[in-house]
Write a protein that binds this DNA or RNA. Structure first.
Length: 964
RNA sequence: GCCGGGUUGGCGGAAUGGCAGACGCGGCGCACUCAAAAUGCGCUGUCCGAGAGGGCGUGCGGGUUCGAGUCCCGCACCCGGCACCA
């Protein structure tokens, strides 16, 4: 802020610069007004939203009004505090909420904190400070910063995911999910989650057969447990993860370098199966994909979710390998005749069974990786593959690697004997972990075939002039026939269904649906998260902690870091921080069959857990009997009949605003969680977010000197188009705002130099809400000037008196006012705040030019400004003689009679180029306009004697004359 | 690599397939002032022209259309996500 402050600071200190008018709208005055109104809103409870039921029920305020539930993605309370990028979405939802409140809605808007997470834990590791302390301190700081923004939130509803009462219900919901299974037959085949006891009952009475055909009565307790466990929506399983013994933690792919080492510490990382909690989100794949049709979300975000779920129809085909079978998954069964080898994921179970003792005759040298026998080749290749991340393995264009495993498969359609490879471009996590390679139709297979000298057969006719290698497009099928079936001459789709029918008839395969979506890995080896509300008995079976004992709270630990191991010890097992507190882990409980010893789960839940349902808790945060009274839940989130497109409304939050970086994971997890709760009858909304809007990011410039060192952005000056710091030239780059880039600007800087209202107006006028843009402090003054001019139109700067007159406004001004009302309503409704503000500035500029300021114009203008600059508007509203807050005043309505224009400008083009403009009546007819245009001297000159071929008339705005 | 998005004056941006650059920042000029600041008024895409006026212009290459920033095809660059950062 240093560069601006020289002038602003003096006025701040003295209240007003010596020769400035006493009642000018300065940052100092703005701050006084803002804090006064914030105090008043707080004492009067202006923005406390009434509930229909429970302790905050105010039925008389709920009756007769529509409700509107507005939500922001809640922040992580970071120790770095807020920068000017964070409030963007909060301001936008606040403007929208204030606008809709003035339009008569009962608006609910609150903000909580997503307070579990790694940064507080890492800080704890470094300093020994308990994460709860750090987190609470940070929340206090953020609350203070946010209060100065003047957000119309119901502060009673602000909760943190770390609050014991919140954790209690998160754990309670986890147990409901654990105690549920997905009945794929329910609801006409759409499927629905049901209580696990209903499954046990079906298995017991025989209405649902056991997978292996045995009778329920014949099973041991352990066997019954295992069967049910295989159905639960939350389950424990061995899953491949990036295990880093040197750090003692599992890492995300992002934290693993291309060399297969940890980004932090540069330790080796091993791909290993570890025991993890999982959520069976895949059971919901179809509903998660289908129900996107029922929500009002940006199309690109729906697209990303559909791609993430990745539903594809294909076939599972059995290839015989000796006496074994391997099932491959393909989306292109029509290309089966072109399959010239089989590739398994290196981790595939069958590999060990299939590997022979020696290379078979005819093995090419290139296939062996230089190893003397297949076993050695496979082991070496697996070790190499284990060091790569999934992203890296799939990178196209990367040199294909793999090794022959010494076995041959039989292509079921033509009996061809084709070699079996393992290669890391095939992933265990997708399909069956095995593919039939069709180099003629798949570029990755083509590259592999070329490298390993394997045959290439085209089965789809590529278009004329095809220059590429593999052809994956539409076309006519060729070279695809045996004694029983021919696909030749068919299109791709027909060939697919024909071959699937044939495979099913022969028992060689079946049509399938597969998904890219994988089950959700739900456990973390961390301290600062929700403990799992379960215990394990001596047989390793899971038992729920009884509801009345919730929440299971985190114990104090001697050390917040996990146990670390010899960096090369791939076989070590993670020991999370909770594992180091034996007196917490070992517990004696009576779960119905007498006191017994149990072990607690030492993993914790991921950060996502709380964010899957926090918005439901806002509705009824003081309720200690249940997570939310059903009457409150259905009032704020319940479905409301049909959507305009005919789909049934799924219910949910009315407007959710947040960063597009959450467009896939957070939104998908929350949708899954919501659907489980819906299926179990716990909530009435089938989707959490009826409407979602993704906001852009505020970026900032960062500057580096010649050595590449970051220099403080606020000390960089522009000299003749060059950026310099202390006289040295520096380079500029687009970046995020962050301490390490020395380019942070905070809301507090803005409050001090301009006031909160100016800051709000600037953030909203920078551009459309969904577009990212760089922050530029020196442009903020434009918003201050706008508010100053508005202030000056109402208040005499010298006397402080109201200078508004009661005489009527002239007609042109009235027209301008009503055009503005119409436009601003439209823009606010569509979240186009930047253009709304532009229209308000234009209107204010019209008023500024008038000799007297008429009340009938300035009052609606103040009301229209109120959503973006609420404190200033409240102050002006009271100076205009009103008592009480304007928060519930009706938003102005345009008079249709004043919206029709007296005359319009008609553009006359010759061949699309503007040559003349005519002022005409809005009602002018086509023929009259055509004659007028053809008579124009400029048009005649532009035609330069050429004949007229066509005249396009779009009365009253445009005529386009096309010469011969 | 895969999925999604973007590219318009010196800068942020505006524009239901119909006047490109609303509004704001910055810059220039004028008024007020002893002066400066503040405020008000005017100009400000670019090139040619004294002017009237004209040529060119929305990342690059093509296409559709009476007419394209906007629609279609191809390309370049930048941003977001890729499942244990949140």
């Amino acid at each position: 802020m240093s560069s601006q402050q020289s002038t602003e600071a003096t006025s701040d200190e003295t209240g007003a610069a010596p020769d400035q008018p006493a009642h000018r709208y300065t940052a100092a005055l703005a701050s006084r007004i803002e804090q006064d109104w914030q105090d008043r809103w707080e004492t009067e409870g202006t923005f406390s939203a009434p509930n229909p039921a429970g302790p905050w029920a105010e039925p008389e305020k709920v009756a007769g009004r529509d409700k509107l539930y507005i939500l922001d993605m809640f922040p992580y309370p970071s120790g770095a505090g807020l920068h000017v990028g964070h409030p963007l979405g909060y301001i936008a939802t606040d403007v929208y909420g204030r606008f809709q409140r003035m339009c008569g809605y009962n608006v609910l808007h609150a903000l909580g904190y997503d307070a579990f997470g790694l940064p507080a834990e890492q800080y704890a590791v470094q300093t020994g400070q308990h994460p709860r302390k750090t987190t609470e301190d940070n929340i206090v700081t953020m609350r203070r910063q946010l209060r100065r923004l003047g957000l119309a939130h119901d502060a009673r509803r602000s909760i943190a995911t770390t609050d014991p009462e919140f954790v209690r219900w998160t754990q309670w919901m986890f147990l409901r999910i654990w105690n549920a299974w997905y009945d794929t037959d329910a609801d006409g085949g759409r499927g629905r989650a049901r209580h696990i006891d209903e499954l046990a009952a079906q298995l017991a009475d025989g209405s649902r057969p056991l997978p292996d055909g045995r009778a329920w009565a014949d099973l041991s307790a352990q066997e019954r447990y295992d069967v049910l466990d295989g159905y639960r929506l939350a389950y424990v399983s061995e899953e491949p993860v990036n295990w880093c013994p040197g750090l003692g933690t599992v890492l995300s792919n992002e934290e693993v370098t291309n060399e297969g080492r940890s980004e932090r510490g540069n330790f080796p990382v091993f791909k290993r199966n570890l025991r993890q909690w999982m959520m069976r989100i895949t059971a919901y794949a179809d509903r998660l994909a289908d129900d996107l049709d029922r929500v009002d979300w940006p199309e690109p975000v729906k697209h990303m979710q559909r791609n993430w779920i990745g539903r594809s129809h294909g076939a599972a085909v059995r290839f015989g390998i000796g006496e074994h079978d391997v099932e491959v998954f393909t989306t292109r069964p029509d290309t089966l005749f072109g399959a010239t080898f089989v590739v398994l994921a290196p981790e595939h179970d069958l590999v060990d069974v299939l590997v022979p003792a020696a290379w078979p005759a005819g093995t090419k040298d290139a296939w062996t990786g230089g190893h003397a026998d297949p076993r050695a080749a496979v082991d070496a290749y697996r070790a190499q593959a284990a060091e790569k991340s999934d992203v890296e393995r799939q990178t196209e264009g990367r040199d294909k690697t793999g090794v022959f495993i010494g076995a041959f498969a039989t292509n079921p359609v033509n009996g061809a004997r084709i070699p079996v490879f393992i290669a890391d471009y095939v992933l265990m996590g997708y399909g069956t972990g095995a593919i039939m390679a069709v180099p003629g139709g798949d570029q990755r297979d083509w590259e592999f075939a070329e490298k390993f000298d394997l045959p290439i057969v085209r089965t789809v006719q590529a278009p004329d002039g095809w220059q590429g290698q593999a052809y994956a497009g539409e076309g006519t099928v060729i070279s695809s026939a045996n004694d029983e079936i021919s696909l030749d001459g068919l299109g791709v789709d027909d060939a697919k269904s024909r071959i699937i029918t044939w495979l099913e008839g022969k028992g060689l395969g079946r049509g399938t649906v597969t998904y890219k979506l994988r089950d959700w890995l739900f456990s973390r080896q961390r301290y600062w998260g929700e403990p799992f509300p379960v215990v394990f008995d001596e047989a390793g079976r899971v038992h729920a902690v009884p509801d009345e004992q919730l929440p299971v709270e985190l114990p104090e630990v001697p050390d917040y870091s996990p146990r670390t191991f010899d960096p090369d010890d791939a076989d070590s097992d993670p020991e999370p921080p909770l594992g180091r507190v034996p007196e917490w882990v070992e517990v004696e409980m009576d779960l119905g069959d007498g006191p017994q010893r149990y072990r607690r789960e030492t993993n914790t839940m991921p950060n996502w857990a709380g964010s899957c349902w926090y918005f439901i808790r806002y509705l009824d945060p003081a309720n200690d009997a249940t997570f939310c009274d059903p009457e409150n839940e259905s009032y704020w989130m319940g479905p409301r009949g049909q959507r305009s497109d005919g789909h049934p409304d799924p219910g949910g939050v009315d407007l959710y605003v947040g960063g597009v970086e959450h467009a896939v994971l957070h939104l998908l997890y929350a949708r899954f969680w919501q659907k489980v709760m819906y299926d179990l009858g716990l909530v009435s909304a089938e989707e959490p977010f009826r409407r979602y809007f993704s906001q852009g990011m505020i970026q900032a410039y960062a500057y580096r000197d010649a050595r590449g060192q970051v220099v403080p952005a606020d000390e960089v000056v522009e000299l003749e188009g060059e950026w310099t710091w202390e006289g040295q030239p520096v380079s500029r780059e687009h970046a995020k705002m962050g301490k390490s880039l020395k380019n942070v600007v905070t809301p507090d800087d803005m409050y001090d130099a301009y006031g909160a209202d100016t800051f709000r107006v600037y953030e909203m006028s920078m551009g459309p809400l969904d577009v990212s843009r760089p922050w530029e402090t020196r442009a903020v003054v434009g918003s201050l000037r706008f508010l100053q001019r508005l202030w000056r139109n109402v208040v005499d700067e010298d006397t402080g008196e109201c200078r508004v007159v009661d005489a009527a406004a002239d007609e042109a001004t009235q027209r301008a006012l009503h055009r503005t009302i119409e436009g601003v309503r439209h823009d606010y409704t569509g979240l186009r705040f930047n253009t709304a503000i532009a229209k308000l500035i234009e209107l204010n500029n019209v008023v500024t030019r008038l000799p007297d300021v008429p009340r009938e114009v300035v009052e609606p203008m103040v009301l229209m400004v109120a959503p973006v600059a609420p404190h200033l508007a409240e102050e002006l509203w009271s100076r205009l003689g009103h008592t009480g807050s304007l928060a519930f005043e009706a938003f102005p309505q345009a008079d249709p009679a004043l919206l029709v224009e007296e005359s319009v400008t008609c553009v006359v083009q010759v061949q699309g180029k503007v040559r003349d403009r005519l002022e005409v009546a809005p009602s002018i007819g086509e023929d009259e306009l055509r004659s007028l245009a053809l008579a124009s001297a400029r048009v005649v000159a532009a035609l330069d004697g050429r004949d007229v071929r066509t005249v396009v008339v779009r009365a009253p705005r445009l005529v386009n004359i096309v010469p011969a």
